[in-house]
Amino acid sequence: MNNSEKIKLGISIGDFNGIGIEIILKTFLDKRMLDFCTPVIFGSTKLLSAYKKSMNINTPFNGVKQIDKTVPGKLNIINLWNDDINVELGKHTEIAGKYAFLSLEAATNSLINNEIDVLVTAPINKDNIQSEEFVFPGHTEYLESKLTGESLMILMAGNLRIGLITGHIPVSEISKTITPELIQQKVSIMHNTLIQDFAISKPKIAILGLNPHCGDNGVIGKEDDDIIRPTIAEIQKEGKLVYGPYAADSFFGSENYKNFDAILAMYHDQGLAPFKTLSFGEGVNFTAGLDKVRTSPDHGTAYELAGKGKANINSFKEAVFSAIQVFKSREEYKSLTKNTLKKRR
């Protein structure tokens, strides 16, 4: 992409029985959104036309067969299939998972080939998308397998950014998965992304403890004292502003989180429960650590809302804006660090 072009923003449709297509169409019903990017939906003109008609969403779009035929200033749809699909809004179906993957796969390939600049993914059903080609707990792990780098899931809303040391794994596996190496890896990714993607020169990062009250000196578990504290001390020797562990039960209620640029939680619900309490419907899921930018809304398929016209577009809209901003920040960082100062002879 050169400086005169708008960012080309790819969109995967997710599970079409959920609210994904509704929030996409409603987002770009506001023509001002086209001032910020050239959106490209990977799906089917027949499918989206049916949605527009059934839900009375009059979002205009431009159907094309190839990515190089997309038109700036319009909502473009790459026509991946012409099949007649049985849409059952609000239902978990195998066919919805099949087409969710086809959309995601095509969008990811375009991202890899630099045909789009960023990717925003609408929600999938993590069960019905499973197949021989998709054997992952979610988007994050799939994209890590396709792109370059090591991923870190970050949920963000404004200045609140929460990353996860462990992601989509069973609770029974958490304590045995947390190692000094894993903590160091996730801190490194978070530190780097805060610098290059958010333009924070000296980021402050908080790390939550694993056990209640950070183990109470070993009374309620030894992981905090044996693994987490020593690892934080080692990381601090590198000059990184990393602090903790903090007891997770009081960290957010006391508003201590406002003193940091980012927080690393030990496991999924430890981080996402307070995040969604504080900012549900406004948050964004950002996959940090990879060579390409991907964001998504902070909610799932919301089958219970599908077809009722009540889906809130705020989180998806924020995902679009966040992808654009992260891409711009990363490009600026690359430009600033491309040519290092040479020593004078």
Rank of each mutant, 00 (worst) to 15 (best):
M156Q: 12
A319K: 08
I178S: 10
R345A: 11
I162Y: 01
G163S: 11
I13M: 09
K46V: 11
A265F: 01
E223N: 14
M33I: 03
L194V: 12
R229K: 15
S296N: 12
S44V: 00
G253A: 10
E331I: 00
K91H: 12
I19A: 07
T59M: 02
K317Q: 14
F198Q: 11
L152D: 04
Y142Q: 10
G300Y: 07
I124C: 09
P170V: 06
I116A: 02
F275N: 05
G239S: 11
I7C: 09
G253I: 05
A323W: 03
S315M: 08
I235Q: 04
E94K: 14
F101Y: 15
N3F: 07
V40K: 01
S315L: 09
I95G: 05
E144I: 03
M266K: 03
A50C: 03
A107V: 05
D226Q: 13
L34M: 08
K202E: 12
N17L: 00
K328E: 15
N125G: 08
F42W: 10
N256I: 11
L336Y: 07
V135I: 08
I124K: 09
F275I: 13
I24W: 00
K126G: 10
D249I: 12
N56K: 13
N109V: 08
G281F: 01
K8C: 13
G43I: 01
G10F: 02
I57F: 03
N17I: 05
V87K: 01
L25H: 02
I200R: 10
G307L: 05
Y99F: 15
G271Y: 06
I21L: 02
P297E: 04
I21M: 01
C214I: 10
H213W: 07
Y51D: 02
L104G: 07
D291L: 09
N17W: 05
I129G: 08
F252D: 02
I169Q: 05
V40S: 03
